[in-house]
């Protein structure tokens, strides 16, 4: 399994805070999971945001970061704290 979190604007657009995905052997990077989600069409196109940010196990990473079953991913828009 893979846990995927969506935050802020994405969470609202998808009406989804968190989702468990059955692990797929062909997934190598966070971008593979992002593309899998975007392929659902409709609101999921929000994840095509060119300035999308992501985290793996609660650490900011790039879309090219490798992942494995059991990981926690998060997709979110550019952060705006401070």
């Amino acid at each position: 399994m893979l846990t995927v979190q969506f935050l802020a604007r994405y969470r609202e657009a998808l009406n989804c805070e968190s989702e468990q995905l059955p692990w797929q052997e062909e997934w190598q990077t966070l971008d593979d999971v992002r593309q899998f989600l975007v392929a659902r069409d409709g609101v999921w196109a929000v994840l095509n945001d060119p300035r999308i940010m992501c985290a793996l196990n609660q650490d900011v990473c790039s879309l090219q970061t490798p992942l494995k079953a059991g990981d926690e991913l998060a997709f979110f828009p550019m952060v705006t704290g401070g």
Partner: peptide, 27 residues
Amino acid sequence: IMDYLKTRAPFWKKEQTASGTHWVDGR
């Protein structure tokens, strides 16, 4: 610390104005 916080810490601002609420865009 402020420069890194602004770009790496997971916070998002949502503003309430007279015309409704909206998410603040990253800069």
